[in-house]
Amino acid sequence: FKEKSRSVLREWYAHNPYPSPREKRELAEATGLTTTQVSNWFKNRRQRDR
């Protein structure tokens, strides 16, 4: 993950740790990642924050 992608994901996570499928698609387009990568990033981040 590039730093720019991570910062976008972190910003979204601060507002909503559970993005909808549509939001995940938008994030994937904005970051250049796949929706699976975005989903996994959020899943891992939520697990880490437990």
Rank of each mutant, 00 (worst) to 15 (best):
N40C: 08
L33R: 07
R48W: 08
E3H: 08
K2M: 09
R6M: 13
T35H: 10
S20A: 06
H15S: 14
R6N: 11
E29W: 02
K24C: 12
E3Q: 05
R48P: 03
E29C: 06
E29G: 05
K24G: 08
R50S: 15
L33V: 05
K43E: 14
E3R: 05
E29N: 06
N16D: 12
E3S: 07
R46L: 08
H15N: 15
P21K: 05
R48A: 11
L33P: 02
N16M: 02
A28G: 08
T34S: 13
R48D: 11
Q37V: 07
Q47E: 14
P17S: 08
K2T: 13
A14R: 07
T31F: 00
Q37E: 07
R22G: 15
E11C: 04
L9R: 00
E29S: 02
R10M: 11
N44V: 07
V8S: 07
L27N: 00
K4C: 12
L9V: 01
N44R: 13
P21T: 14
P17R: 09
T36S: 14
T35Q: 15
T34P: 00
P19D: 01
Q47M: 09
N44F: 12
R46T: 06
K43A: 11
A14P: 02
P17G: 04
L33F: 08
S39H: 07
P21H: 09
R10V: 13
R46I: 05
N16E: 12
R45T: 13
L33Q: 03
P21C: 13
F1A: 02
E26W: 04
W41V: 01
Q47F: 07
N44G: 08
A14Y: 09
W12R: 06
L27W: 01
Y18T: 10
N40P: 01
Y18V: 09
T34G: 06
V8C: 08
R25T: 13
Q47N: 07
P17L: 06
E11A: 09
S20I: 05
K43Y: 04
E11D: 12
D49W: 00
P19L: 04
H15R: 11
S20E: 11
R6H: 11
G32W: 02
R48M: 04
N44H: 14
N40V: 11
R22T: 15
Y13V: 02
E3K: 09
P21D: 14
E26A: 03
L9H: 00
W12C: 05
P21R: 07
D49M: 05
R25Q: 13
T31M: 05
E23W: 00
L27V: 08
Y13F: 05
A14L: 11
V8T: 14
Y13W: 06
L33W: 09
Y18S: 10
V8E: 07
Y18W: 07
N16G: 01
A14C: 15
T31Q: 03
Y13K: 00
Q37L: 04
H15F: 12
A30P: 01
A28T: 07
L9Q: 00
S20Y: 06
P19K: 01
P19N: 01
R25I: 14
Y18I: 08
L33C: 06
A28W: 00
E11T: 04
S39V: 03
W41L: 00
S7H: 11
K24P: 01
E29P: 00
K2C: 10
P19R: 01
W41M: 07
A28N: 02
K43D: 13
R25G: 15
K2N: 13
T31D: 00
V38I: 04
R46M: 07
T34Y: 01
R25F: 15
N16Q: 10
S7Y: 09
E26Y: 05
G32N: 14
R22F: 14
R6F: 07
W41P: 02
T36I: 11
T34N: 15
K24M: 11
T36W: 06
R45P: 02
S39L: 01
A30Y: 07
W12I: 05
F42K: 01
V8Q: 06
N16C: 09
K2Q: 10
F1N: 07
T34E: 09
L9M: 09
G32D: 05
T36R: 14
R22L: 15
R45A: 10
Q47D: 15
P19C: 02
N44C: 06
E29H: 03
E23Q: 05
P17H: 04
N40R: 13
R45K: 14
Q47S: 10
E29M: 03
D49T: 04
K4I: 11
P21L: 15
S5G: 07
E11S: 10
F1V: 10
H15M: 14
S7F: 11
A30Q: 10
N16L: 03
Q37T: 08
K4R: 08
F42H: 00
E26V: 05
L27R: 00
E26S: 04
N40F: 03
L33K: 08
P19S: 01
P21Q: 08
K24T: 13
R10C: 13
L33E: 05
S39E: 15
F42D: 01
L9K: 02
W12H: 12
E26F: 07
A30G: 12
L27T: 00
L9E: 05
S7A: 09
L9Y: 00
V8Y: 10
K2D: 14
R22Q: 15
P17K: 09
N40W: 03
N44W: 02
K24F: 14
R6S: 12
S5H: 12
F42N: 00
R45H: 12
S5Y: 05
S20F: 04
K2Y: 04
L9P: 01
R45G: 05
F42S: 01
L33G: 03
H15I: 14
E29D: 11
F1M: 04
R45E: 13
R46F: 02
E23G: 00
L33S: 05
K43W: 06
R45M: 14
N16S: 14
R48L: 09
S39F: 03
R50E: 12
N40I: 10
V8M: 14
S5K: 10
E26T: 03
R48T: 11
R48E: 14
K43V: 10
V8W: 02
L9C: 03
S5F: 08
S39K: 09
H15P: 01
E29V: 06
K2F: 13
E23V: 04
A30T: 12
S7M: 12
V8G: 02
F42T: 02
P21M: 10
Q47V: 08
R6P: 08
A30I: 11
R6A: 12
T31W: 01
V38E: 03
S20N: 05
L9G: 00
R45Y: 05
W12F: 15
D49L: 04
T31I: 08
R10D: 12
H15K: 13
R46N: 09
S5N: 14
T34F: 03
P21E: 13
A30H: 08
K43N: 08
L33N: 05
V38A: 03
P17W: 05
R25D: 12
E3M: 08
P21W: 07
D49C: 03
V8D: 06
W41I: 00
A30K: 11
R48Q: 11
S39D: 14
D49F: 02
N40K: 14
P17F: 03
R10W: 10
